[in-house]
């Protein structure tokens, strides 16, 4: 039971963060349990291993590199319009596409509404054509027959 308890509280036990009673109980257990001693020793070795090495330090040119980055950043601000234009390209392409689709849909609607094509029931006035195009009587009759589908 105590072996299991130790396994569940290993980190807190190593860091001495357990309530005193529990800490003492596990210490007593550890004194008598060889496998738990080994586990605790191995575990604390790994768990504390990172505390042992010296932390790396930033390079000597740390500050000057920051200044360079800041200068690059401010230089890039002038390039912003180009970047902005680049960003606008897909937007412009999208707008062009939408406009094309809208125009074609409108055109289709206009065509379907019949304002561009004479409906089958429309009767064309041949005499108006005759006046407009200076047709003689025979030509007028021909136009009348042809356009109004009369036999």
């Amino acid at each position: 039971m105590s072996c299991l308890l130790l396994k569940h509280h290993l980190i807190d036990f190593i860091e001495h963060k357990l309530p005193q009673e529990k800490q003492l109980k596990l210490q007593d257990h550890l004194a008598n349990c060889r496998s738990c001693q080994e586990l605790c020793h191995r575990f604390s070795g790994v768990y504390n291993s990172l505390d042992e090495y010296p932390l790396p330090e930033p390079s000597a040119y740390f500050y000057s590199k920051i200044v360079t980055k800041l200068e690059d950043q401010s230089a890039n601000e002038y390039v912003l319009p180009v970047k902005f234009l680049r960003l606008l390209k897909p937007v412009a392409a999208g707008l062009f596409l939408v406009t094309g689709i809208t125009v074609s849909l409108l055109f289709r609607e206009v065509v379907n509404s019949g304002s561009l094509v004479a409906s089958p029931n429309t009767t064309i006035d041949a005499s108006a054509w005759a006046n407009e195009f200076y047709l003689d009587n025979n030509e007028e009759t021909m136009v009348d027959l042809l356009l109004n589908n009369e036999n």
Partner: peptide
């Protein structure tokens, strides 16, 4: 780490 740390200060400045 060094690169990101530098960027942190750049952002702090800006």
């Amino acid at each position: 780490a060094e690169d990101i740390a530098q960027e942190v200060f750049v952002e702090a400045y800006l």
